[in-house]
Design a binder for these strands. Structure first.
Lengths: 110, 110
DNA sequence: GTCTTATGCATAATTCTCTTATGTATTAGC
DNA sequence: GCTAATACATAAGAGAATTATGCATAAGAC
């Protein structure tokens, strides 16, 4: 597991990009996908994920669709067009940040 | 300038690594060196830097030496042997984190 | 010669984002 | 029947930064 400190500020970026790559998903599914992609090194907690989803929705980046699976609720999230644009921006911003950090820390990131 | 959110959790890593590469430095000097290395994209604020230096010193990673330059004080910081070890660990941890993020975000960092 | 900028330290109040804890409820495995 | 996994959600608390403030010296502009 990674030091959770480093995760700060990257959660929105992760959520947006995963949704961009995998289409509509529900919260629990996102946590599992990130766990897979990170080989269990990044474990999203619910207390962080759901508020983030709600916030991104409130900002117009995500739209929702609630489906009942039998008696259990599933709330699917998908990017709006604004969300797609924000996703692009956030990823670029993150990559730029890493390039800067490579220079400051004098390390190669590959 | 980068979104300051991303900086969270990386400040200690930056301070430790810069001190490892440049030997003893004083606070203001560190801000300037980071500004240089990052081409003004990372600007350390004093409100973040000084508490971080004090914390690292309290943890035994840094030792200090105060010098008077004329009437102005300079407090030099240098890594202890524990600090050198911590610096190594933090950089490795950061690079690992970036590798994981590359997988999750599906981007190349080079 | 005064005014602004740069140098140099430091701390406090506030904000933001996450962790941890808690709550509710359904479904699957043994 | 019990435990683990699925599935949502919110609240209290912690941690790390920003912003604001304070003090003080030195250098450069005009």
């Amino acid at each position: 597991m990674h030091s959770p400190e480093l995760l700060k500020g990257t959660l929105q970026t992760i959520v947006l990009k995963v949704l961009k790559d995998h289409g509509k998903m529900y919260g629990y599914e996102i946590t599992q996908r990130v766990k897979e992609l990170s080989e269990s090194r990044l474990l999203l907690t619910e207390g962080a994920l759901y508020p983030t989803l709600h916030k991104l929705e409130a900002e117009g980046c995500l739209k929702t669709e609630t489906v009942m699976m039998g008696k259990r609720m599933r709330k699917y999230y998908a990017l709006t067009s604004e969300g797609r644009s924000t996703a692009r921006d956030r990823v670029v911003e993150f990559v730029d940040f890493i390039k800067t950090m490579s220079n400051v820390l004098q390390v190669e990131m590959n």
